[in-house]
Amino acid sequence: MEPQNPQTNQPENELTSSETGTPSPIAAALQREHPEWTSEVIEALGETTIVVPREHIVDACAFLKTAPGLEFNFLSDLCGFDRGPEEEPRFEVNYHLFSTTKFHRVRLKVVLNEDDAHVPSVTGVWRTANWHERETYDLFGVIFDNHPDLRRILLPDDWQGHALRKDFPLRGYEPYSLE
């Protein structure tokens, strides 16, 4: 099977590809249809990053999933990132999309403020987002609105704090004891 990859000219896998400046056809398609859905497009290291305003993320995902020629029907990964307690906006949520028919990839990014770390859930678009969002909630404390079952997934239910935040100490707050 040859990668039939007519829609994109991105050699994503090459280690040395750093074609900055060439606008990605994926971002261009999104911008053409809905210019207000993209606030920034970053091309670096052969990967396309589209920064999407929070309120449009579900619409943008649904559009990318169904638009002919794009067909991002596979959510590879969803992960959070904490820039640090002094940064504002503090949190990032990254969506790595993949197409099982076109074989191209794109990253969507949502940035969030600490005091309002809410983002709409994309479980309605891809069901696989369920556990990814639970993990991001568990480790970063980002709330995914309209998520069907937003509970902690890795840490115990009575855990205090969110472990992957930069201000959470590496060894936790207290040593473990069974009592």
């Binding site: 840490l155 472990a163 959470f168 100490p169 590496l170 060894r171 936790g172 040593p175 473990y176 069974l178």
Partner: peptide, 13 residues
Amino acid sequence: FDNYAIVQAWTKL
């Protein structure tokens, strides 16, 4: 794994 998630010396139990 000297971190928050792992019990460091459970052997004491």
